[in-house]
Each structure stands twice: as C-alpha cells, then as structure tokens.
C-alpha cells in the first residue's frame, strides 16, 4: 500500500473508532483537539442526515431520544456513500432490535415508511404516461400489457395504522390527535406527484394488484389474481385513478415500438 494511504486510513479510524493517530500534526493545539472537531463533524453530519430523513420518528420519540438513537445508529452502521441522502436506509432494522425502543413496536414500520418517502422525494423524474397511445391499443393486445410503476412508488405493509400515524405528524396537522394502535393494520402507498410526496392507505385488493404489476405481471394476470379473492375489484376506476395519480407511468407492449 502506498505510504500516504496509511495516513488516510489511520486518520479515518481515528475519526470513526476514536483510535490514536501518529501521522498528523496540529501545531497550535494538541492533535486531540483537531480530531475532536473531525469526530464532531462526522457525527453531526450523519445525525443531521437522519433527522432530515426521519422527521416523524423524531417527533414520536423526541429530540433527545432521537439524538441518542442516532449516535448508537452511527456506531453500528457506518456511512457507505458520499451522498448523505443515502444514509439511514437501515434505521428500520436498527430500531427493531434497539432495546430502548421496544415499547414502541410500530417504530420500525414508521421508519420503513419514512425511508420510502425519503426515496420518493429524490426519485428520478418521470414523463407522464402516453394516454393516447395507451387508449389506442387494440383489444386483442390489451390483456398482455405490462405497466410500470412510478420510480417514487413504494408499498409498505404494516400491522399498525402507519398511515394515520404518518399523516398526524405532517406540517399543519392538529397537535391534539389520539391514535388507537389497535385500529387495525394499514398498507401504505407512497408516491410523488407534482413534487409532493403523498402517503395514502390501500385496500387489500388494491395493494395486491399493484404488487402483481410491480413484479411484472401482465394486466390480465394481475387482474385475474385479484378478482379471484375480491370479485368486486373495480379495474376500470382504479386504472383511471392510478394513471391520473401518476402511479402507473409507462407501459410495455409491442404496439409501442410500432
């Protein structure tokens, strides 16, 4: 290894693991003072990133608890990207085994939902679906269509009312809410339209259809699977709605190339 690399690795370990450092010089003050500034920046930048990605978790547990949780998270899960917006993908997993959060069993699922929102916020822009082309597809080809979901779109299943909890913590919502955890499980749909990240609750057949589509099923296969268990599933109104909401943003069909 090149000699200067060793200095760099030693410096990195001094910041992250509080190791000693021999190759550095701090002429006007002890080297420890310099390292403390770097350690502070390191933790502060990651804490800041977690705070921006998880505003609901932060409100739920309070600033002090959040800070402590963030410090422990940083200890156990280092950053892997120069883009701070990538940091914190595993907070849900971390919370599931975080002893101090065991009283709040819904936290990991809220974290999963917030990460989906965070990803949606930065997801690539889309072109709206070509509705004229879609509507002109010949009847004999309709059932073999495959739809593509918006890259911002995520479905988060939970055994708790995560959509209600998330909504209650958005800016401008009344502060005096009360949510009954036993009010039932919710399936959240995250999407972004006109730059606004939205979260809404899906019914079972809705989520089943979207998940079929997400996994690459054709229009008819997805619909048939859902109709089997939910005979009153209304494809017509859902299709129109999900295209309007930019949840279905493209389709894949031979007709398109012609």
């Amino acid at each position: 290894m090149t000699a200067w690399f060793e200095d760099v690795l030693e410096f990195g370990n001094a910041i992250r693991n509080n190791d000693a450092m021999s190759g550095g010089i701090g002429p006007n003050y002890p080297i420890g003072t310099a390292l403390e500034i770097y350690r502070n920046n390191y933790r502060g930048n990651l804490q800041g990133a977690l705070g921006l990605a998880y505003p609901v978790i932060r409100q739920l547990v309070g600033d002090e608890f959040f800070r402590m949780m963030a410090i422990m998270h940083i200890e156990s899960r280092p950053s892997k990207s120069g883009n701070l917006h990538d940091y914190g993908a595993e907070l849900s997993k971390f919370l599931a085994s975080f002893p101090n959060a065991q009283e709040l069993p819904y936290l990991p699922e809220i974290a999963k939902l917030e990460w989906a929102c965070h990803m949606a916020y930065f997801a690539a822009d889309i072109e709206p679906i070509d509705i004229v082309l879609l509507a002109s597809i010949a009847p004999e080809n309709q059932d073999r269509l495959r739809f593509l979901l918006n890259p911002a779109c995520r479905i988060v299943r939970s055994s708790f009312p995560i959509v209600d909890i998330w909504q209650a913590h958005q800016p401008g919502m009344p502060e005096d809410f009360l949510i009954d955890l036993d009010s039932g499980p919710q399936i959240a749909l995250v999407n972004r339209r006109n730059d606004v990240v939205r979260v809404e609750a899906l019914s079972l057949p809705e989520s089943a259809w979207l998940e079929e589509i997400e996994s690459g099923a054709t229009l008819w296969d997805a619909t048939a699977v859902v109709l089997e268990n939910h005979p009153d599933f209304d494809l017509e109104s859902h299709l129109v709605n999900w295209i309007e909401q930019e949840i279905l943003v493209d389709f894949d069909h031979e007709a398109k190339e012609n």
Partner: peptide, 25 residues
C-alpha cells in the same frame, strides 16, 4: 479532500498528505 477508506465513508472534507504519489492519484 478524501472521504472514504473503502470500508466506510466519513461525510466531511478531510485533508491528506501532499506528496508526489498523492498528486498523481
């Protein structure tokens, strides 16, 4: 500056030794 050891990233602007080798890198 540098920010990654290869194992983990320090999301900050970190100095390094100014040498011929680091210059060519």
């Amino acid at each position: 500056c540098w920010n990654s050891t290869g194992e983990f990233v320090v999301n900050d602007l970190l100095p390094f030794p100014y040498t011929r080798a680091s210059l060519s890198h």
